[in-house]
Design a protein around this nucleic acid. Structure first.
Lengths: 192, 192
DNA sequence: GAAGTTACTTGCCTTAAGGCAAGTTTTCAA
DNA sequence: TTGAAAACTTGCCTTAAGGCAAGTAACTTC
């Protein structure tokens, strides 16, 4: 019943197979339809997901109310809103299914319990957070120092899957440009 | 000998005074001169600091070798490179003292030890990381959705101290613009 | 399978910010 | 205290990306 994708997420040097078994059996398989929200702004998040199948997108509303994509999730990734879960505060993010999705869900109390009894999981969590921080910092630097066309190429190389599913306008806001500009960038790259 | 600024950093709902005492007494007071590096790219970071006095700046080199500021540190802030410490990998960041600095230093092994015996410290650490992730995400969104002038105003409101100490060019790269543009923005705001 | 919506492209023009270079001011070290 | 370097400003021109609008294409949905 539990998938390899799920096992792989919790792979970590100090983590035993038995530990992983104990962790993954607390996950519940859930399905969502295209367009369903996994999280809505204003909610206090009390669980997180691991994506088994499908594509999801997180977004916020900026100061003018525009929808800005903050991330795209592909199979095997952890889908979570850290700030809301750890600080018990209402989230500013929405997470929406771009396609039909199958996910592994775990309530945060369940996770918290495992956290205290499996030291390797606490380490895993710290390493995971440190990694998220690293890539988020990198994202800010990329927006500052790369041209739109280079950011596009990079995203295309990193997450090609989303280009088959997500509409241009959502990819555009992730890159920090308009859909018009993205359309032109695409055209330019095709002509080369 | 230990300062209130240091105590305040570790303030947390589940943290007792005794816990804080145990933590802060592991910190060692260190001084650096303007221009000294607290961390150099390529190093594996094995300690972190809490800034008592002075201003520091972190920066990376982008794909073209340009110096891009990633953060400015003011008194009372934790000065750390999370990715390098938690993953034991060479850092890409440099941290430099903008002014003479007095800091509280703690080795990561010391910290790790406390981590295991003071549960509240582990919670504190998770909350701190979650917060860092939140503000780093916010930074990316701000770069995408705000004009240079609004980002300038925001930074001025948040960290006015750095404008008295850091040269324009370093503030400019943090905002994602050139020093020329920043000079013009400043001029425009003065004339209003 | 027709109507309506959403997605995408393209043209024309504008705008925010950058590039370069010259000039001034400030800082700092010898 | 003076000379050099760094910091900052400003002018002139360029460029990347945006704004708007018209048009086509694609996909729901009834």
């Amino acid at each position: 019943m539990y998938s390899d994708k799920l096992r792989l997420v919790y792979q970590y040097p100090t983590m035993s197979y038995a530990d992983i078994d104990r962790i993954i059996e607390r996950h519940e398989k859930v399905s969502f339809k295209k367009g369903d929200l996994l999280l809505r702004e204003g909610q206090i998040s009390d669980c997180y997901y691991i994506l088994e199948e499908g594509i999801a997108r997180s977004f916020v509303h900026d100061y003018e109310g525009n929808d800005i994509s903050t991330n795209f999730f592909c199979p095997g990734e952890v889908v979570i809103e850290v700030a809301s879960i750890f600080h018990h505060i209402p989230t500013q993010e929405n997470i929406i299914c771009i396609t039909d999705c199958v996910l592994w869900k775990i309530k945060i109390e369940q996770f918290q319990g495992l956290f205290e009894t499996i030291p390797a999981l606490a380490e895993w969590g710290r390493a995971w957070m440190a990694y998220q921080l690293l890539i988020t910092k990198k994202r800010a630097i990329d927006i500052i120092s790369l041209s739109a066309i280079d950011r596009y190429k990079q995203l295309l190389a990193e997450k090609p899957l989303i280009f088959q599913q997500a509409p241009l306008k959502h990819i555009a806001t992730f890159l920090g440009i308009t859909d018009t500009s993205l359309s032109r960038i695409r055209k330019e790259l095709v002509s080369k």
